[in-house]
Design a protein around this nucleic acid. Structure first.
Length: 491
RNA sequence: CGGGGCGUAGCGUAGCCCGGUCAUCGCGCCACAUUUGGGAUGUGGAGGUCGCAAGUUCGAAUCUUGCCGCCCCGACCA
């Protein structure tokens, strides 16, 4: 990669970090690779979590919770799984500290060594399947549809706020089914739920697809994913749904008797999204003035800023705003009246823009006289003077429009950045100069994929679902190919 | 673990090459006053082991060595 691209990357990283910190979403912590999610960032996560959780329950899933620690031996049971995760595990070896007899500090008590080390879960397949073994005997116990909201730890070499932290929050669904088809249907259903959430709630268009073998989840038969495009032209895997076949059932010996009294291993799925979605949101919509949040998941949708000189005017605005606030709340809009007199209006305008609050309303004595207010939308900064009569309903329509507009803008960008490449030179040029997804032919081999990654840092993001079949030649080897796949540089 | 950059007040920084009233400036913070329609202004004030340790020197933020930490790029990865 050229110097120019590297420095562009650095600028983009800087921009990304600044927004997260200035908007008050998160901060670096004292622990390397870990971050503190601040109240505003967590409120955003809660909004996302609640909506996803609602959809999981609507589709028959239940929440449960499994242990943080996994006995080392569990991880060893599924060969591909252990290979995928072994190199990034935090391991608990002792259970006690003591005062150092040779000083005042505290040391690990060598007497307190665990007989079997415990792994801090990097994902919960193993401990869950160990448990499912005792829960499942009959086809009557199936399907088993469980989700858990949890934290996991993956000891990555390099971290990035929200996108890759040592510890992160996520949800992981783990289901067991009587038939292969039922498990595949579940896998695709959950992928659909993720895609719908990304597009309708996060206003972030995604490509649904299936991963190539190289990018497949450790232990899965097939990994499906949603891939989003960030404003710097890099792709971000935003959610995954895995069809696990009978791999984990076999590894953990989970069998059931079917209606014909035949014994068989169950079929499994797992699926998850993480706080990475917040990183995706930041990179998908933000501008130089800060965050831009889609109204549907903004922790605060509307802020009202009073403008006044002296107590009398303040009181006038207070009185006018009070019933308006009630109107907003009555139709389900979250609203804050920021009458903090220690900050001036200009300061507040900038602050709420940084935080991505979708709509800002400014109201002063001279507006009240005319029965109007200044309404400013965050997505395109347009200001409008709006009648105070029916203000809540006007804003409700506006919020909906903002949601659509943010999505539309991201979609136009995304669609404009899916480009076909038909030969190697074109492919490399597009990667370096334009970025985004590149739709190209590939001969279907892991070696070719690996080679392309080595040469360009681009990986196959996915083979889109409902891909049109088309004869062509692999951009690297020239070997025949039956369809195009999506390449991109990715986070 | 490799390459690059950096560490000076809560945050961001100047000074370092060329050692000596150099600890600079901005933001923030506290007090008071005037202010309030796009991050206010004035006056006064508080705040520092110059990352840590050793060395060179009459004298070190500045030079040397070692260590620690952070950020960015790469390998790894959601």
């Amino acid at each position: 990669m050229s110097k120019e691209i590297t420095s562009r990357e650095q600028d983009y990283s800087q921009w990304y970090n600044d927004i997260i910190i200035k908007a008050g979403l998160a901060d670096y912590s004292a622990v390397r690779g870990c971050m503190v999610i601040k109240p505003y960032g967590f409120a955003l996560w809660e909004k996302m979590r609640d909506q996803l959780d609602k959809r999981f329950k609507e589709t028959g899933h239940q929440n449960a919770y499994f242990p943080l620690f996994i006995p080392k031996s569990f991880l060893n049971k599924e060969a591909a799984h252990v290979e995928g995760f072994a190199k990034e595990c935090a391991v608990v070896t002792h259970y006690r500290l003591k005062i150092n007899p040779e000083g005042n500090d505290i040391i690990v008590d060598p007497e307190a060594k665990l007989e079997e080390e415990l792994i801090v879960r990097p994902t919960s397949e193993t401990i869950i399947w160990n448990t499912y073994k005792t829960w499942i005997q009959s086809y009557r116990d199936l399907p088993l549809l469980i989700n858990q909201w949890a934290n996991v730890v993956r000891w990555e070499m390099r971290t990035r706020l929200f996108l890759r932290t040592t510890e992160f929050l996520w949800q992981e669904g783990h289901t067991a089914h009587a038939t292969s088809q039922e498990a595949i249907d579940e896998t695709l259903q959950m992928l659909e739920i993720y895609a719908e959430f990304a597009e309708e709630w996060m206003a972030m268009p995604v490509v649904k697809g299936v991963k190539s073998i190289n990018e497949r989840f450790a232990g899965a038969v097939d990994t499906y994913c949603i891939e989003a495009l960030m404003q710097d032209g890099k792709a971000l895997q935003s959610g995954t749904s895995h069809f696990l076949g009978q791999n984990f059932a076999k590894a953990f010996d989970v069998k059931f008797s079917d209606k014909e009294n035949k014994l068989d291993y169950v079929w499994a799925t797992s699926w998850g999204v993480s706080t990475r979605l917040i990183g995706a949101l930041v990179m998908a919509h933000s501008d130089d003035d800060g965050l831009v949040l889609p109204p549907k998941i903004a922790p605060l949708q509307v802020v009202i800023v009073p403008i006044f000189k002296g107590e009398d005017q303040k009181k006038l605005v207070d009185e006018k705003v009070a019933p308006i606030m009630e109107d907003f709340k009555a139709i389900g809009i979250s609203v804050k009246y920021d009458d903090d007199d220690s900050r001036r209006p200009g300061w507040k305008f900038a602050e709420y823009e940084m935080k991505g609050v979708p709509v800002r309303i400014a109201m002063g004595a001279r507006d009240i006289e005319k029965n109007i207010a200044e309404v400013v939308r965050r997505d395109n900064k347009k200001k409008e003077m709006v009648s105070l009569d029916g203000l809540a309903n006007t804003v409700l329509v506006l919020l909906d429009d903002i949601q659509k507009n943010i999505y539309q803008k991201a979609k136009v960008y995304r669609d404009d950045h899916i480009t076909k490449a038909d030969n190697w030179d074109e492919f490399v040029k597009l990667l370096d100069e334009k970025g985004g997804f590149i739709s190209a032919h590939w001969d279907g081999t892991a070696e070719t994929e690996e080679k392309i990654k080595e040469l360009t840092k681009a990986t196959i993001r996915c083979i889109p679902l409902n891909n049109t079949k088309e004869e062509g030649k692999c951009i690297l080897t020239g070997n025949p190919s039956g369809e195009r796949v999506l390449f991109a540089r990715a986070y």
